[in-house]
């Protein structure tokens, strides 16, 4: 069976605070377009905000790739955040509630993970950090 779907695939640059707002709005727009419910929309844009801000503060900015993905009947949004910053030394620690090297609450990474369905973080010292997350429409 062939499905004809308008797949959205785009890349956004996050270099300054204003980009954060634009990113959130764009993700919200796409989420609404695929019919994601308001609660899941809010969870997704909150996770987006957390990760994008982290990237801005610790990674010196980067890019966010936004893609609508399908798996069988499921439809969802996949976001990949990539920066070329200093990287995270101890990912396990960074994923703990309340752990921070800055002045934030340390809820960003672990909180974002709880808000989405799939969450993968990879980091290499001196090379940068990649966060990939996915939220299903009905997830």
């Amino acid at each position: 069976m062939l499905m004809m779907t308008m797949l959205i695939k785009e890349s956004l640059i996050i270099q300054q605070e204003r980009d954060l707002v634009y990113c959130r709005n764009r993700v919200k727009e796409v989420a609404a377009k695929i019919g994601m419910g308001i609660v899941n929309q809010t969870k997704l844009i909150t996770a987006t905000s957390e990760i994008a801000r982290n990237m801005l503060i610790y990674g010196g900015g980067g890019t966010m790739r936004l893609e609508v993905v399908t798996k069988g009947k499921q439809e969802g949004i996949q976001l990949v955040f990539e920066d070329k910053g200093p990287g995270i030394a101890d990912i396990q620690k960074a994923m703990q509630d309340g752990y921070t090297t800055g002045r934030s609450l340390g809820m960003g990474l672990p909180g974002a993970k709880r808000l989405v369905n799939e969450f993968v973080i990879q980091s290499a010292i001196g090379q940068g950090t990649t966060v990939k997350m996915l939220k299903w429409k009905n997830g």
Binding site: K43, T46, D97, M107, R114
Partner: peptide
């Protein structure tokens, strides 16, 4: 409501 649910899930 959606913001409240999200904040709880976020841990705040």
């Amino acid at each position: 409501p959606a913001v409240a649910i999200t904040l709880i899930e976020l841990g705040l």
